[in-house]
Computed example of a mutant assay.
Amino acid sequence: MTVLLLAGTGDARQIAEGLAQAGVPAVASFAGATQRARPLPLATRTGGFGGEAGFVAYLDQAGITAVLDATHPFADRITRRTAQVCAARGIPYLYHLRPAWQPEDGDDWREIAREEDAADLIPVGRTVFLGTGRQTLDRFANLAGRRVICRQIDPPTAPFPFAGGEFLIGRPPFSVAHERDLFAALGIDWIVVKNAGGEASRTKLTAARELGIPVLMIRRPDPPDAPMTDSVDAAVAWATGL
């Protein structure tokens, strides 16, 4: 038996640690979007599979007998493809989806369906902090007339894709105090994030609440029609019991 863990999130790291402690034969896979990712306690591969055909070939070559998908909640293309391939081939599959963030007293959140919708709510002349990563940055191009600051982990390899934008480099985790001081120093008027869930990255939302900054929350894509859990322990138990 060899379990393929599709990693790249904090929960995936916890699952990897649980699999290693339980002695489950497993290999982890990073998409490679982040440079110098912290190593996991499992054999690890980095990079895409080359589409569906490449993914199927890898499953055969590596002798994968089960797939545990702990990718980012917004990596919906990878998740849908993985679930479909596993279903077609009769390979056990489990999707780990951590709980979505829910607003608390004092939060000022507005939910939007797409990145492009942010321009409908953020007035011209405001300073916007994007906590959405660089992969969907071009979808905010209609925020012309605002100062847009996009935080990412790795230094940029290309110019900002539209006028009025700038990169901010930072490697998480960030404390609430760090985020509060950063937003105050930058004069942030609006924050845009994806509803990724997770405690480690919630600190920016707590800081926004303390500063009275409104947040645009991008709604999650629909999960696949497949077995699913929101518990790290349950994910490890599933793999252990195969």
Rank of each mutant, 00 (worst) to 15 (best):
Y93C: 03
Y93P: 00
A75F: 12
A87S: 10
D60T: 09
F55S: 02
A57Y: 07
G51D: 02
T65I: 03
Y93A: 00
G54T: 06
P73E: 11
L68E: 05
P73C: 12
G63L: 09
D76A: 15
G90S: 08
A53H: 09
R89C: 00
C86P: 02
G48N: 08
P73S: 13
L94H: 02
Y58E: 11
G54Q: 07
I78F: 12
A75L: 12
I78A: 15
D60M: 06
L68F: 13
Q61E: 15
V85A: 08
E52N: 08
P73A: 11
G63S: 09
G54V: 06
L59C: 08
Y58C: 10
G48K: 10
A87F: 06
L68Y: 12
F55D: 02
A53L: 08
G54I: 00
V67Y: 08
R77P: 03
F55M: 06
I78P: 02
G48F: 07
G50H: 07
R89V: 02
R80C: 08
V85D: 04
R80Q: 15
Y58G: 02
T82K: 10
Q84R: 14
D69V: 06
A66Y: 02
D69G: 11
A88I: 03
D60V: 06
G63D: 04
A66H: 07
F74E: 15
V56M: 05
A83F: 09
T82W: 01
D76W: 14
H72T: 12
A62I: 07
T82S: 15
F55P: 06
T82D: 11
A66E: 04
R81G: 10
Y58Q: 05
V67P: 10
G50P: 04
A62T: 04
D60W: 00
A70L: 11
I64P: 04
P92F: 00
P92D: 08
H72I: 12
E52A: 13
V56W: 01
I78S: 13
G90H: 05
A87W: 03
V67S: 03
F74L: 14
C86Q: 06
F49P: 00
T65E: 13
T71S: 15
E52D: 11
T71L: 12
G50W: 07
T65Y: 00
Y58S: 04
Y93H: 01
G48M: 00
A75P: 10
T65P: 00
A83L: 06
P73R: 12
H72R: 15
A70D: 05
G63P: 05
